[in-house]
Design a protein around this nucleic acid. Structure first.
Lengths: 208, 208
DNA sequence: CCGTCAACTGTATCCGTGGTACAGTGTTTT
DNA sequence: AAAACACTGTACCACGGATACAGTTGACGG
């Protein structure tokens, strides 16, 4: 196989995706022109369409890559927190602290969530993209619900809370916190909201 | 003055704004064409530009109207909750319950938040529109912070929480909850998140 | 009943750009 | 040398934003 060529192709594709993701999060998908992307990457229109058969394919590729990265991040981060801590509750709390710190360390604040961006423009996309979006959020629910179940087995929670809702709340805080941070131009607002969520979770299981 | 004519003009303007708001929340601002708006309202292009000198003015009018309505809603809702309850904490908790129920009663779920939509497309707009957006969120912070201060005067809160953050959290939960509801296609997810926020607030002041 | 003003319609027109198609080219690998 | 990949270059169209402006309708005020 043509290693060097393929690597170059993959690299170009990645650079298109990088430019596209940044532009989409600032202006939305419809307002992101192919012209500006190829100008940023140094490519011709034909080159773009060699990688993506149309703009819809670009949208799909953007979202797939974004979701994979988020999942990898959660795997890595909460996996590390688990290793540091045997207790599931404290492992989760440590993970949330790390998540908050990770967000605080972004020099220009969080760039934005593609799931949220696509949600507010979902009529631009086909069924497949919308289903990808739905599946991603349901995946996060499942992921964190499993953690919460493990915690609940050891720390009986207040019986009036639905753990699916608590699991969803992390996505809610993240998406809402990103919007808050962007709109009020305070990059630390997001990590502080994550810490509030952490307080809430602690309160549910420790009754504090 | 020509009452009937002016009323007709205002009515047309409102209908343009209604059509535009619905379209913007589904497809984004850039993808919302003037052609589709005038088709929906039954107008010609000349008629549109009679009301708005360009598309930017439409954006501004949309956001101004949206923010005014939200503020009016909060005034009405929490004002009513205050009248029913002398205690500031219970007044707030009743207001949050009412907010949750109001959202649950929307037959097709929440249509979306323009502030969030504009946030994810803010490079399309001029400084004025972006500042309107920022001011709106800061206004909500101030509004709820004042309530929280009144509550804190009677119920000493846990000393490790910042009340600005708790005030912001309502916007966060609302925006994040709307996205959650839309993406997972469960209109009740949003009101349930609002109830979780209510639990959190209760816990802060009552230590439950 | 006349004049005026608001609220349009209708028509024409310009320009930029998103999106598509496809033939050809250079470079690398086998 | 041929095949495969990663493009370039060019040509093209439809659509949408924006402008301009003359004409029309209907309500109102004097």
């Amino acid at each position: 196989m043509q290693d060097a060529q393929q690597r170059k192709g993959e690299d170009t594709r990645e650079r298109i995706l990088n430019a596209a993701e940044a532009a989409v999060l600032k202006k939305g998908f419809a307002a992101t022109s192919i012209d500006e992307l190829i100008a940023a990457v140094g490519l011709t229109k034909g080159g773009f369409f060699y990688h993506f058969k149309d703009k819809g394919e670009l949208a799909k590729a953007l979202l797939v890559r974004y979701i994979e990265r988020e999942n990898a991040l959660f795997d890595e981060l909460f996996g590390r927190a688990d290793q540091l801590n045997e207790d599931p509750l404290h492992g989760f709390l440590v993970g949330l602290k790390m998540l908050s710190e990770l967000m605080a360390d972004l020099p220009n604040g969080h760039p934005g969530c593609l799931v949220a961006s696509f949600c507010y423009q979902d009529r631009l996309f086909d069924r497949e993209v919308r289903e990808l979006n739905t599946a991603a959020v349901l995946g996060w629910r499942k992921r964190f619900r499993e953690r919460l179940d493990r915690i609940a087995a050891r720390y009986p929670p207040r019986n009036d809370v639905d753990l699916d809702d608590v699991a969803d709340m992390l996505s809610v805080i993240a998406d809402g916190g990103i919007i808050l941070s962007k709109v009020v131009k305070d990059k630390d607002a997001l990590p502080r909201q994550v810490m509030l969520y952490r307080d809430f979770v602690r309160g549910i299981f420790l009754g504090a």
